[in-house]
Write a protein that binds this DNA or RNA. Structure first.
Length: 273
DNA sequence: TTAAGTGTTGCTCT
DNA sequence: AAGAGCAACACTTA
């Protein structure tokens, strides 16, 4: 689940719940998720500190400590944050738990152990070292800059949207919705896209991500809260397309499944020029 | 019961 | 350069 909209809501959740409280205890539920840091080292670095700020880049969430260091979090394929009081309500999949001085706890919940947590001195350097491109919601990104990013790409448009080194934050799920709204087949090659198509693709990116954040991405029932004109509530092989009632189809790309409407998202057979 | 599938990234090979 | 295939993991579904 955790793509840009989900992680953005986790960031807001962390901001609203967990700042400015001294961390009295640190419990690490699994060392598998630790990125280049040992359990004792991380625990020692966090204990006695406070979280002061939170930022996000793509699917990465970063929490700034009062000593200037950053706790970095990536959720992998599953996961969320949980702020709670009673340890009896603890999830069995808590991989990192911070115990605050007000009796509350913040847990990094990650059922499948594909998430990663690390500690970094410098947030910008970390983002750079991860090879992440511009965040898909970066205010400085406009359709001109987006077109520039896509210029010279030779691959499929869905692959380009999911390429974190190009544009950070979009994964398999939201790229399907974006391409549905832009009316583009996932295997459309980027080089065939004209200026107008790129511009409408960019607008679809911003529209989809904004709506998903607003509708509460990251919570279980998000799909039910998205507009029924969206693909995601109907994202199932053979389900009727919300726009034309044609059957939703799938195609394998990069070892995962892309869902699309074969009628609304025609494979552009036209080769430019 | 067993096998395949699932929103992630990262690696190898072509 | 870009894409296919696979591995990591734990759980659900067919």
């Amino acid at each position: 689940m955790p793509e840009l909209p989900d992680v953005e809501n986790y960031r807001r959740y962390l901001n609203a719940t967990s700042l400015h409280r001294t961390i009295e205890g640190v419990k690490i539920g699994s060392t598998k998720i630790l990125r280049r840091i040992s359990e004792p080292h991380l625990a020692r670095a966090l204990r006695g500190r406070r979280l002061e700020r939170a930022r996000r880049h793509g699917k990465h969430l970063l929490a700034g400590l009062d000593d200037g260091a950053w706790l970095t979090m990536h959720f992998g394929m599953t996961g969320r944050l949980n702020y709670f009081r009673r340890l009896a309500n603890d999830s069995p999949y808590d991989r990192l738990r911070l115990d605050f001085d007000n009796g509350y706890h913040l847990a990094f919940v990650n059922r499948r152990l594909l998430g990663r947590i690390g500690l970094e001195k410098d947030a910008d350097a970390f983002i750079e070292s991860q090879g992440l491109g511009v965040d898909a919601m970066d205010p400085s990104l406009d359709d001109k800059a987006f077109a520039k990013l896509m210029a010279g790409r030779r691959g499929h448009v869905k692959s380009a949207l999911m390429d974190q080194s190009l544009l950070a934050g979009i994964g398999n799920i939201y790229s399907d919705e974006i391409l549905f709204q832009a009316g583009l087949h996932p295997k459309t090659s980027v080089q065939t896209l004209e200026e107008a198509s790129l511009s409408s693709l960019f607008r679809a990116i911003r529209r989809v991500l904004t709506v998903a954040i607003k509708r509460g991405a990251g919570s279980e029932e998000l799909v039910g809260r998205l507009p029924s004109s969206y693909l995601l509530p109907h994202r199932e092989d053979g389900a009727p397309c919300p726009r034309c009632c044609c059957r939703i189809a799938t195609v394998k790309m990069q070892n995962r499944t892309a869902y699309y409407c074969p009628r609304c998202q025609r494979e552009s057979a036209t080769v430019a020029e």
